[in-house]
Simulated scan of single mutants.
Amino acid sequence: MSENWTVVEMLRHTRHEWLNRLQLIKGNLSMGKTEQAKRIMDEIVQEMQQEALLSNLKLYRFAELLLTHNWKGYRFRLEYEIVKGQDNLRLDDQLLTDWTRGFFDELNRVSLPINDNILYMAIEPENDAVRFLFQFHGIIENEPELKNWLFCKEAYPDHVTYKQVSENEYQIQVLFCLE
């Protein structure tokens, strides 16, 4: 999964995404489903607000990783939320990006590809740390390998917890202390 995006490639993906959304809105309006069209527009507004909050964290590599994730053919779709808006988190952008990319790659490797897998990620800044709450809805084929990857990291992140909530729902909480 190459990450050497050119400006033209980024614009192509963005244009494709927006055209799909506009076609959804237009199709719903043409069928008289104005409430559905309004719901789609509200979702777009919320997503754009989250993108703005993500960009304001001043973690540019990390933001790029999240913003382009769903274009890369992973076995799971990513949704994220910045729980509290805060500018300029004092985290090492490269370390955070490398860890998150590694986590995404490992989750991609152990998740079942024929399922509609979704990873929901909440980012919650605290006084002296940032809490990342990952909720994975889908099928994990090799849970021991994922756990091994999560807990083998000695220095970064600072703390990890893992819990299987139900048959196809997993919760992973990761804590990164601020610099």
Rank of each mutant, 00 (worst) to 15 (best):
Y80G: 01
E141T: 13
T6Q: 09
N56I: 03
F103N: 05
I82V: 15
W5E: 04
N117L: 00
F76K: 05
L95S: 13
P113V: 11
L67Y: 10
A129C: 09
Q171M: 09
L54H: 12
T6K: 05
R15Y: 11
E3L: 15
N142C: 05
L29Q: 02
D158E: 11
F151H: 07
F76T: 07
E9A: 09
H137R: 14
P157A: 05
Q94A: 11
V130P: 01
L112T: 12
H159C: 01
K153R: 12
L53T: 02
A37I: 10
S55P: 00
D158I: 00
G27R: 13
L24H: 08
H159A: 08
N142V: 14
I123N: 00
G85L: 05
A155S: 10
G73W: 08
K58I: 11
M31R: 15
E79F: 09
F132N: 08
E47C: 01
D158W: 00
T14Q: 14
G27K: 12
Y74R: 14
Y162V: 00
N108Q: 07
E3C: 05
N28D: 14
L22P: 02
Y170D: 00
R109S: 08
L89Y: 04
Y170H: 07
E126K: 14
I140S: 09
W149A: 06
E47R: 13
N70F: 07
Q50A: 03
D98A: 09
L119F: 00
D87R: 11
R131T: 02
A122T: 12
E167D: 13
P125N: 02
R39C: 03
L178H: 01
F136H: 07
E143G: 07
W149E: 10
G32C: 08
N148V: 08
G138W: 07
N70V: 12
A37S: 05
A122V: 03
T100V: 11
L133C: 06
F76S: 04
L24C: 09
R12L: 11
Y170F: 13
V130N: 01
Q164L: 05
E3M: 14
N168C: 03
L175F: 01
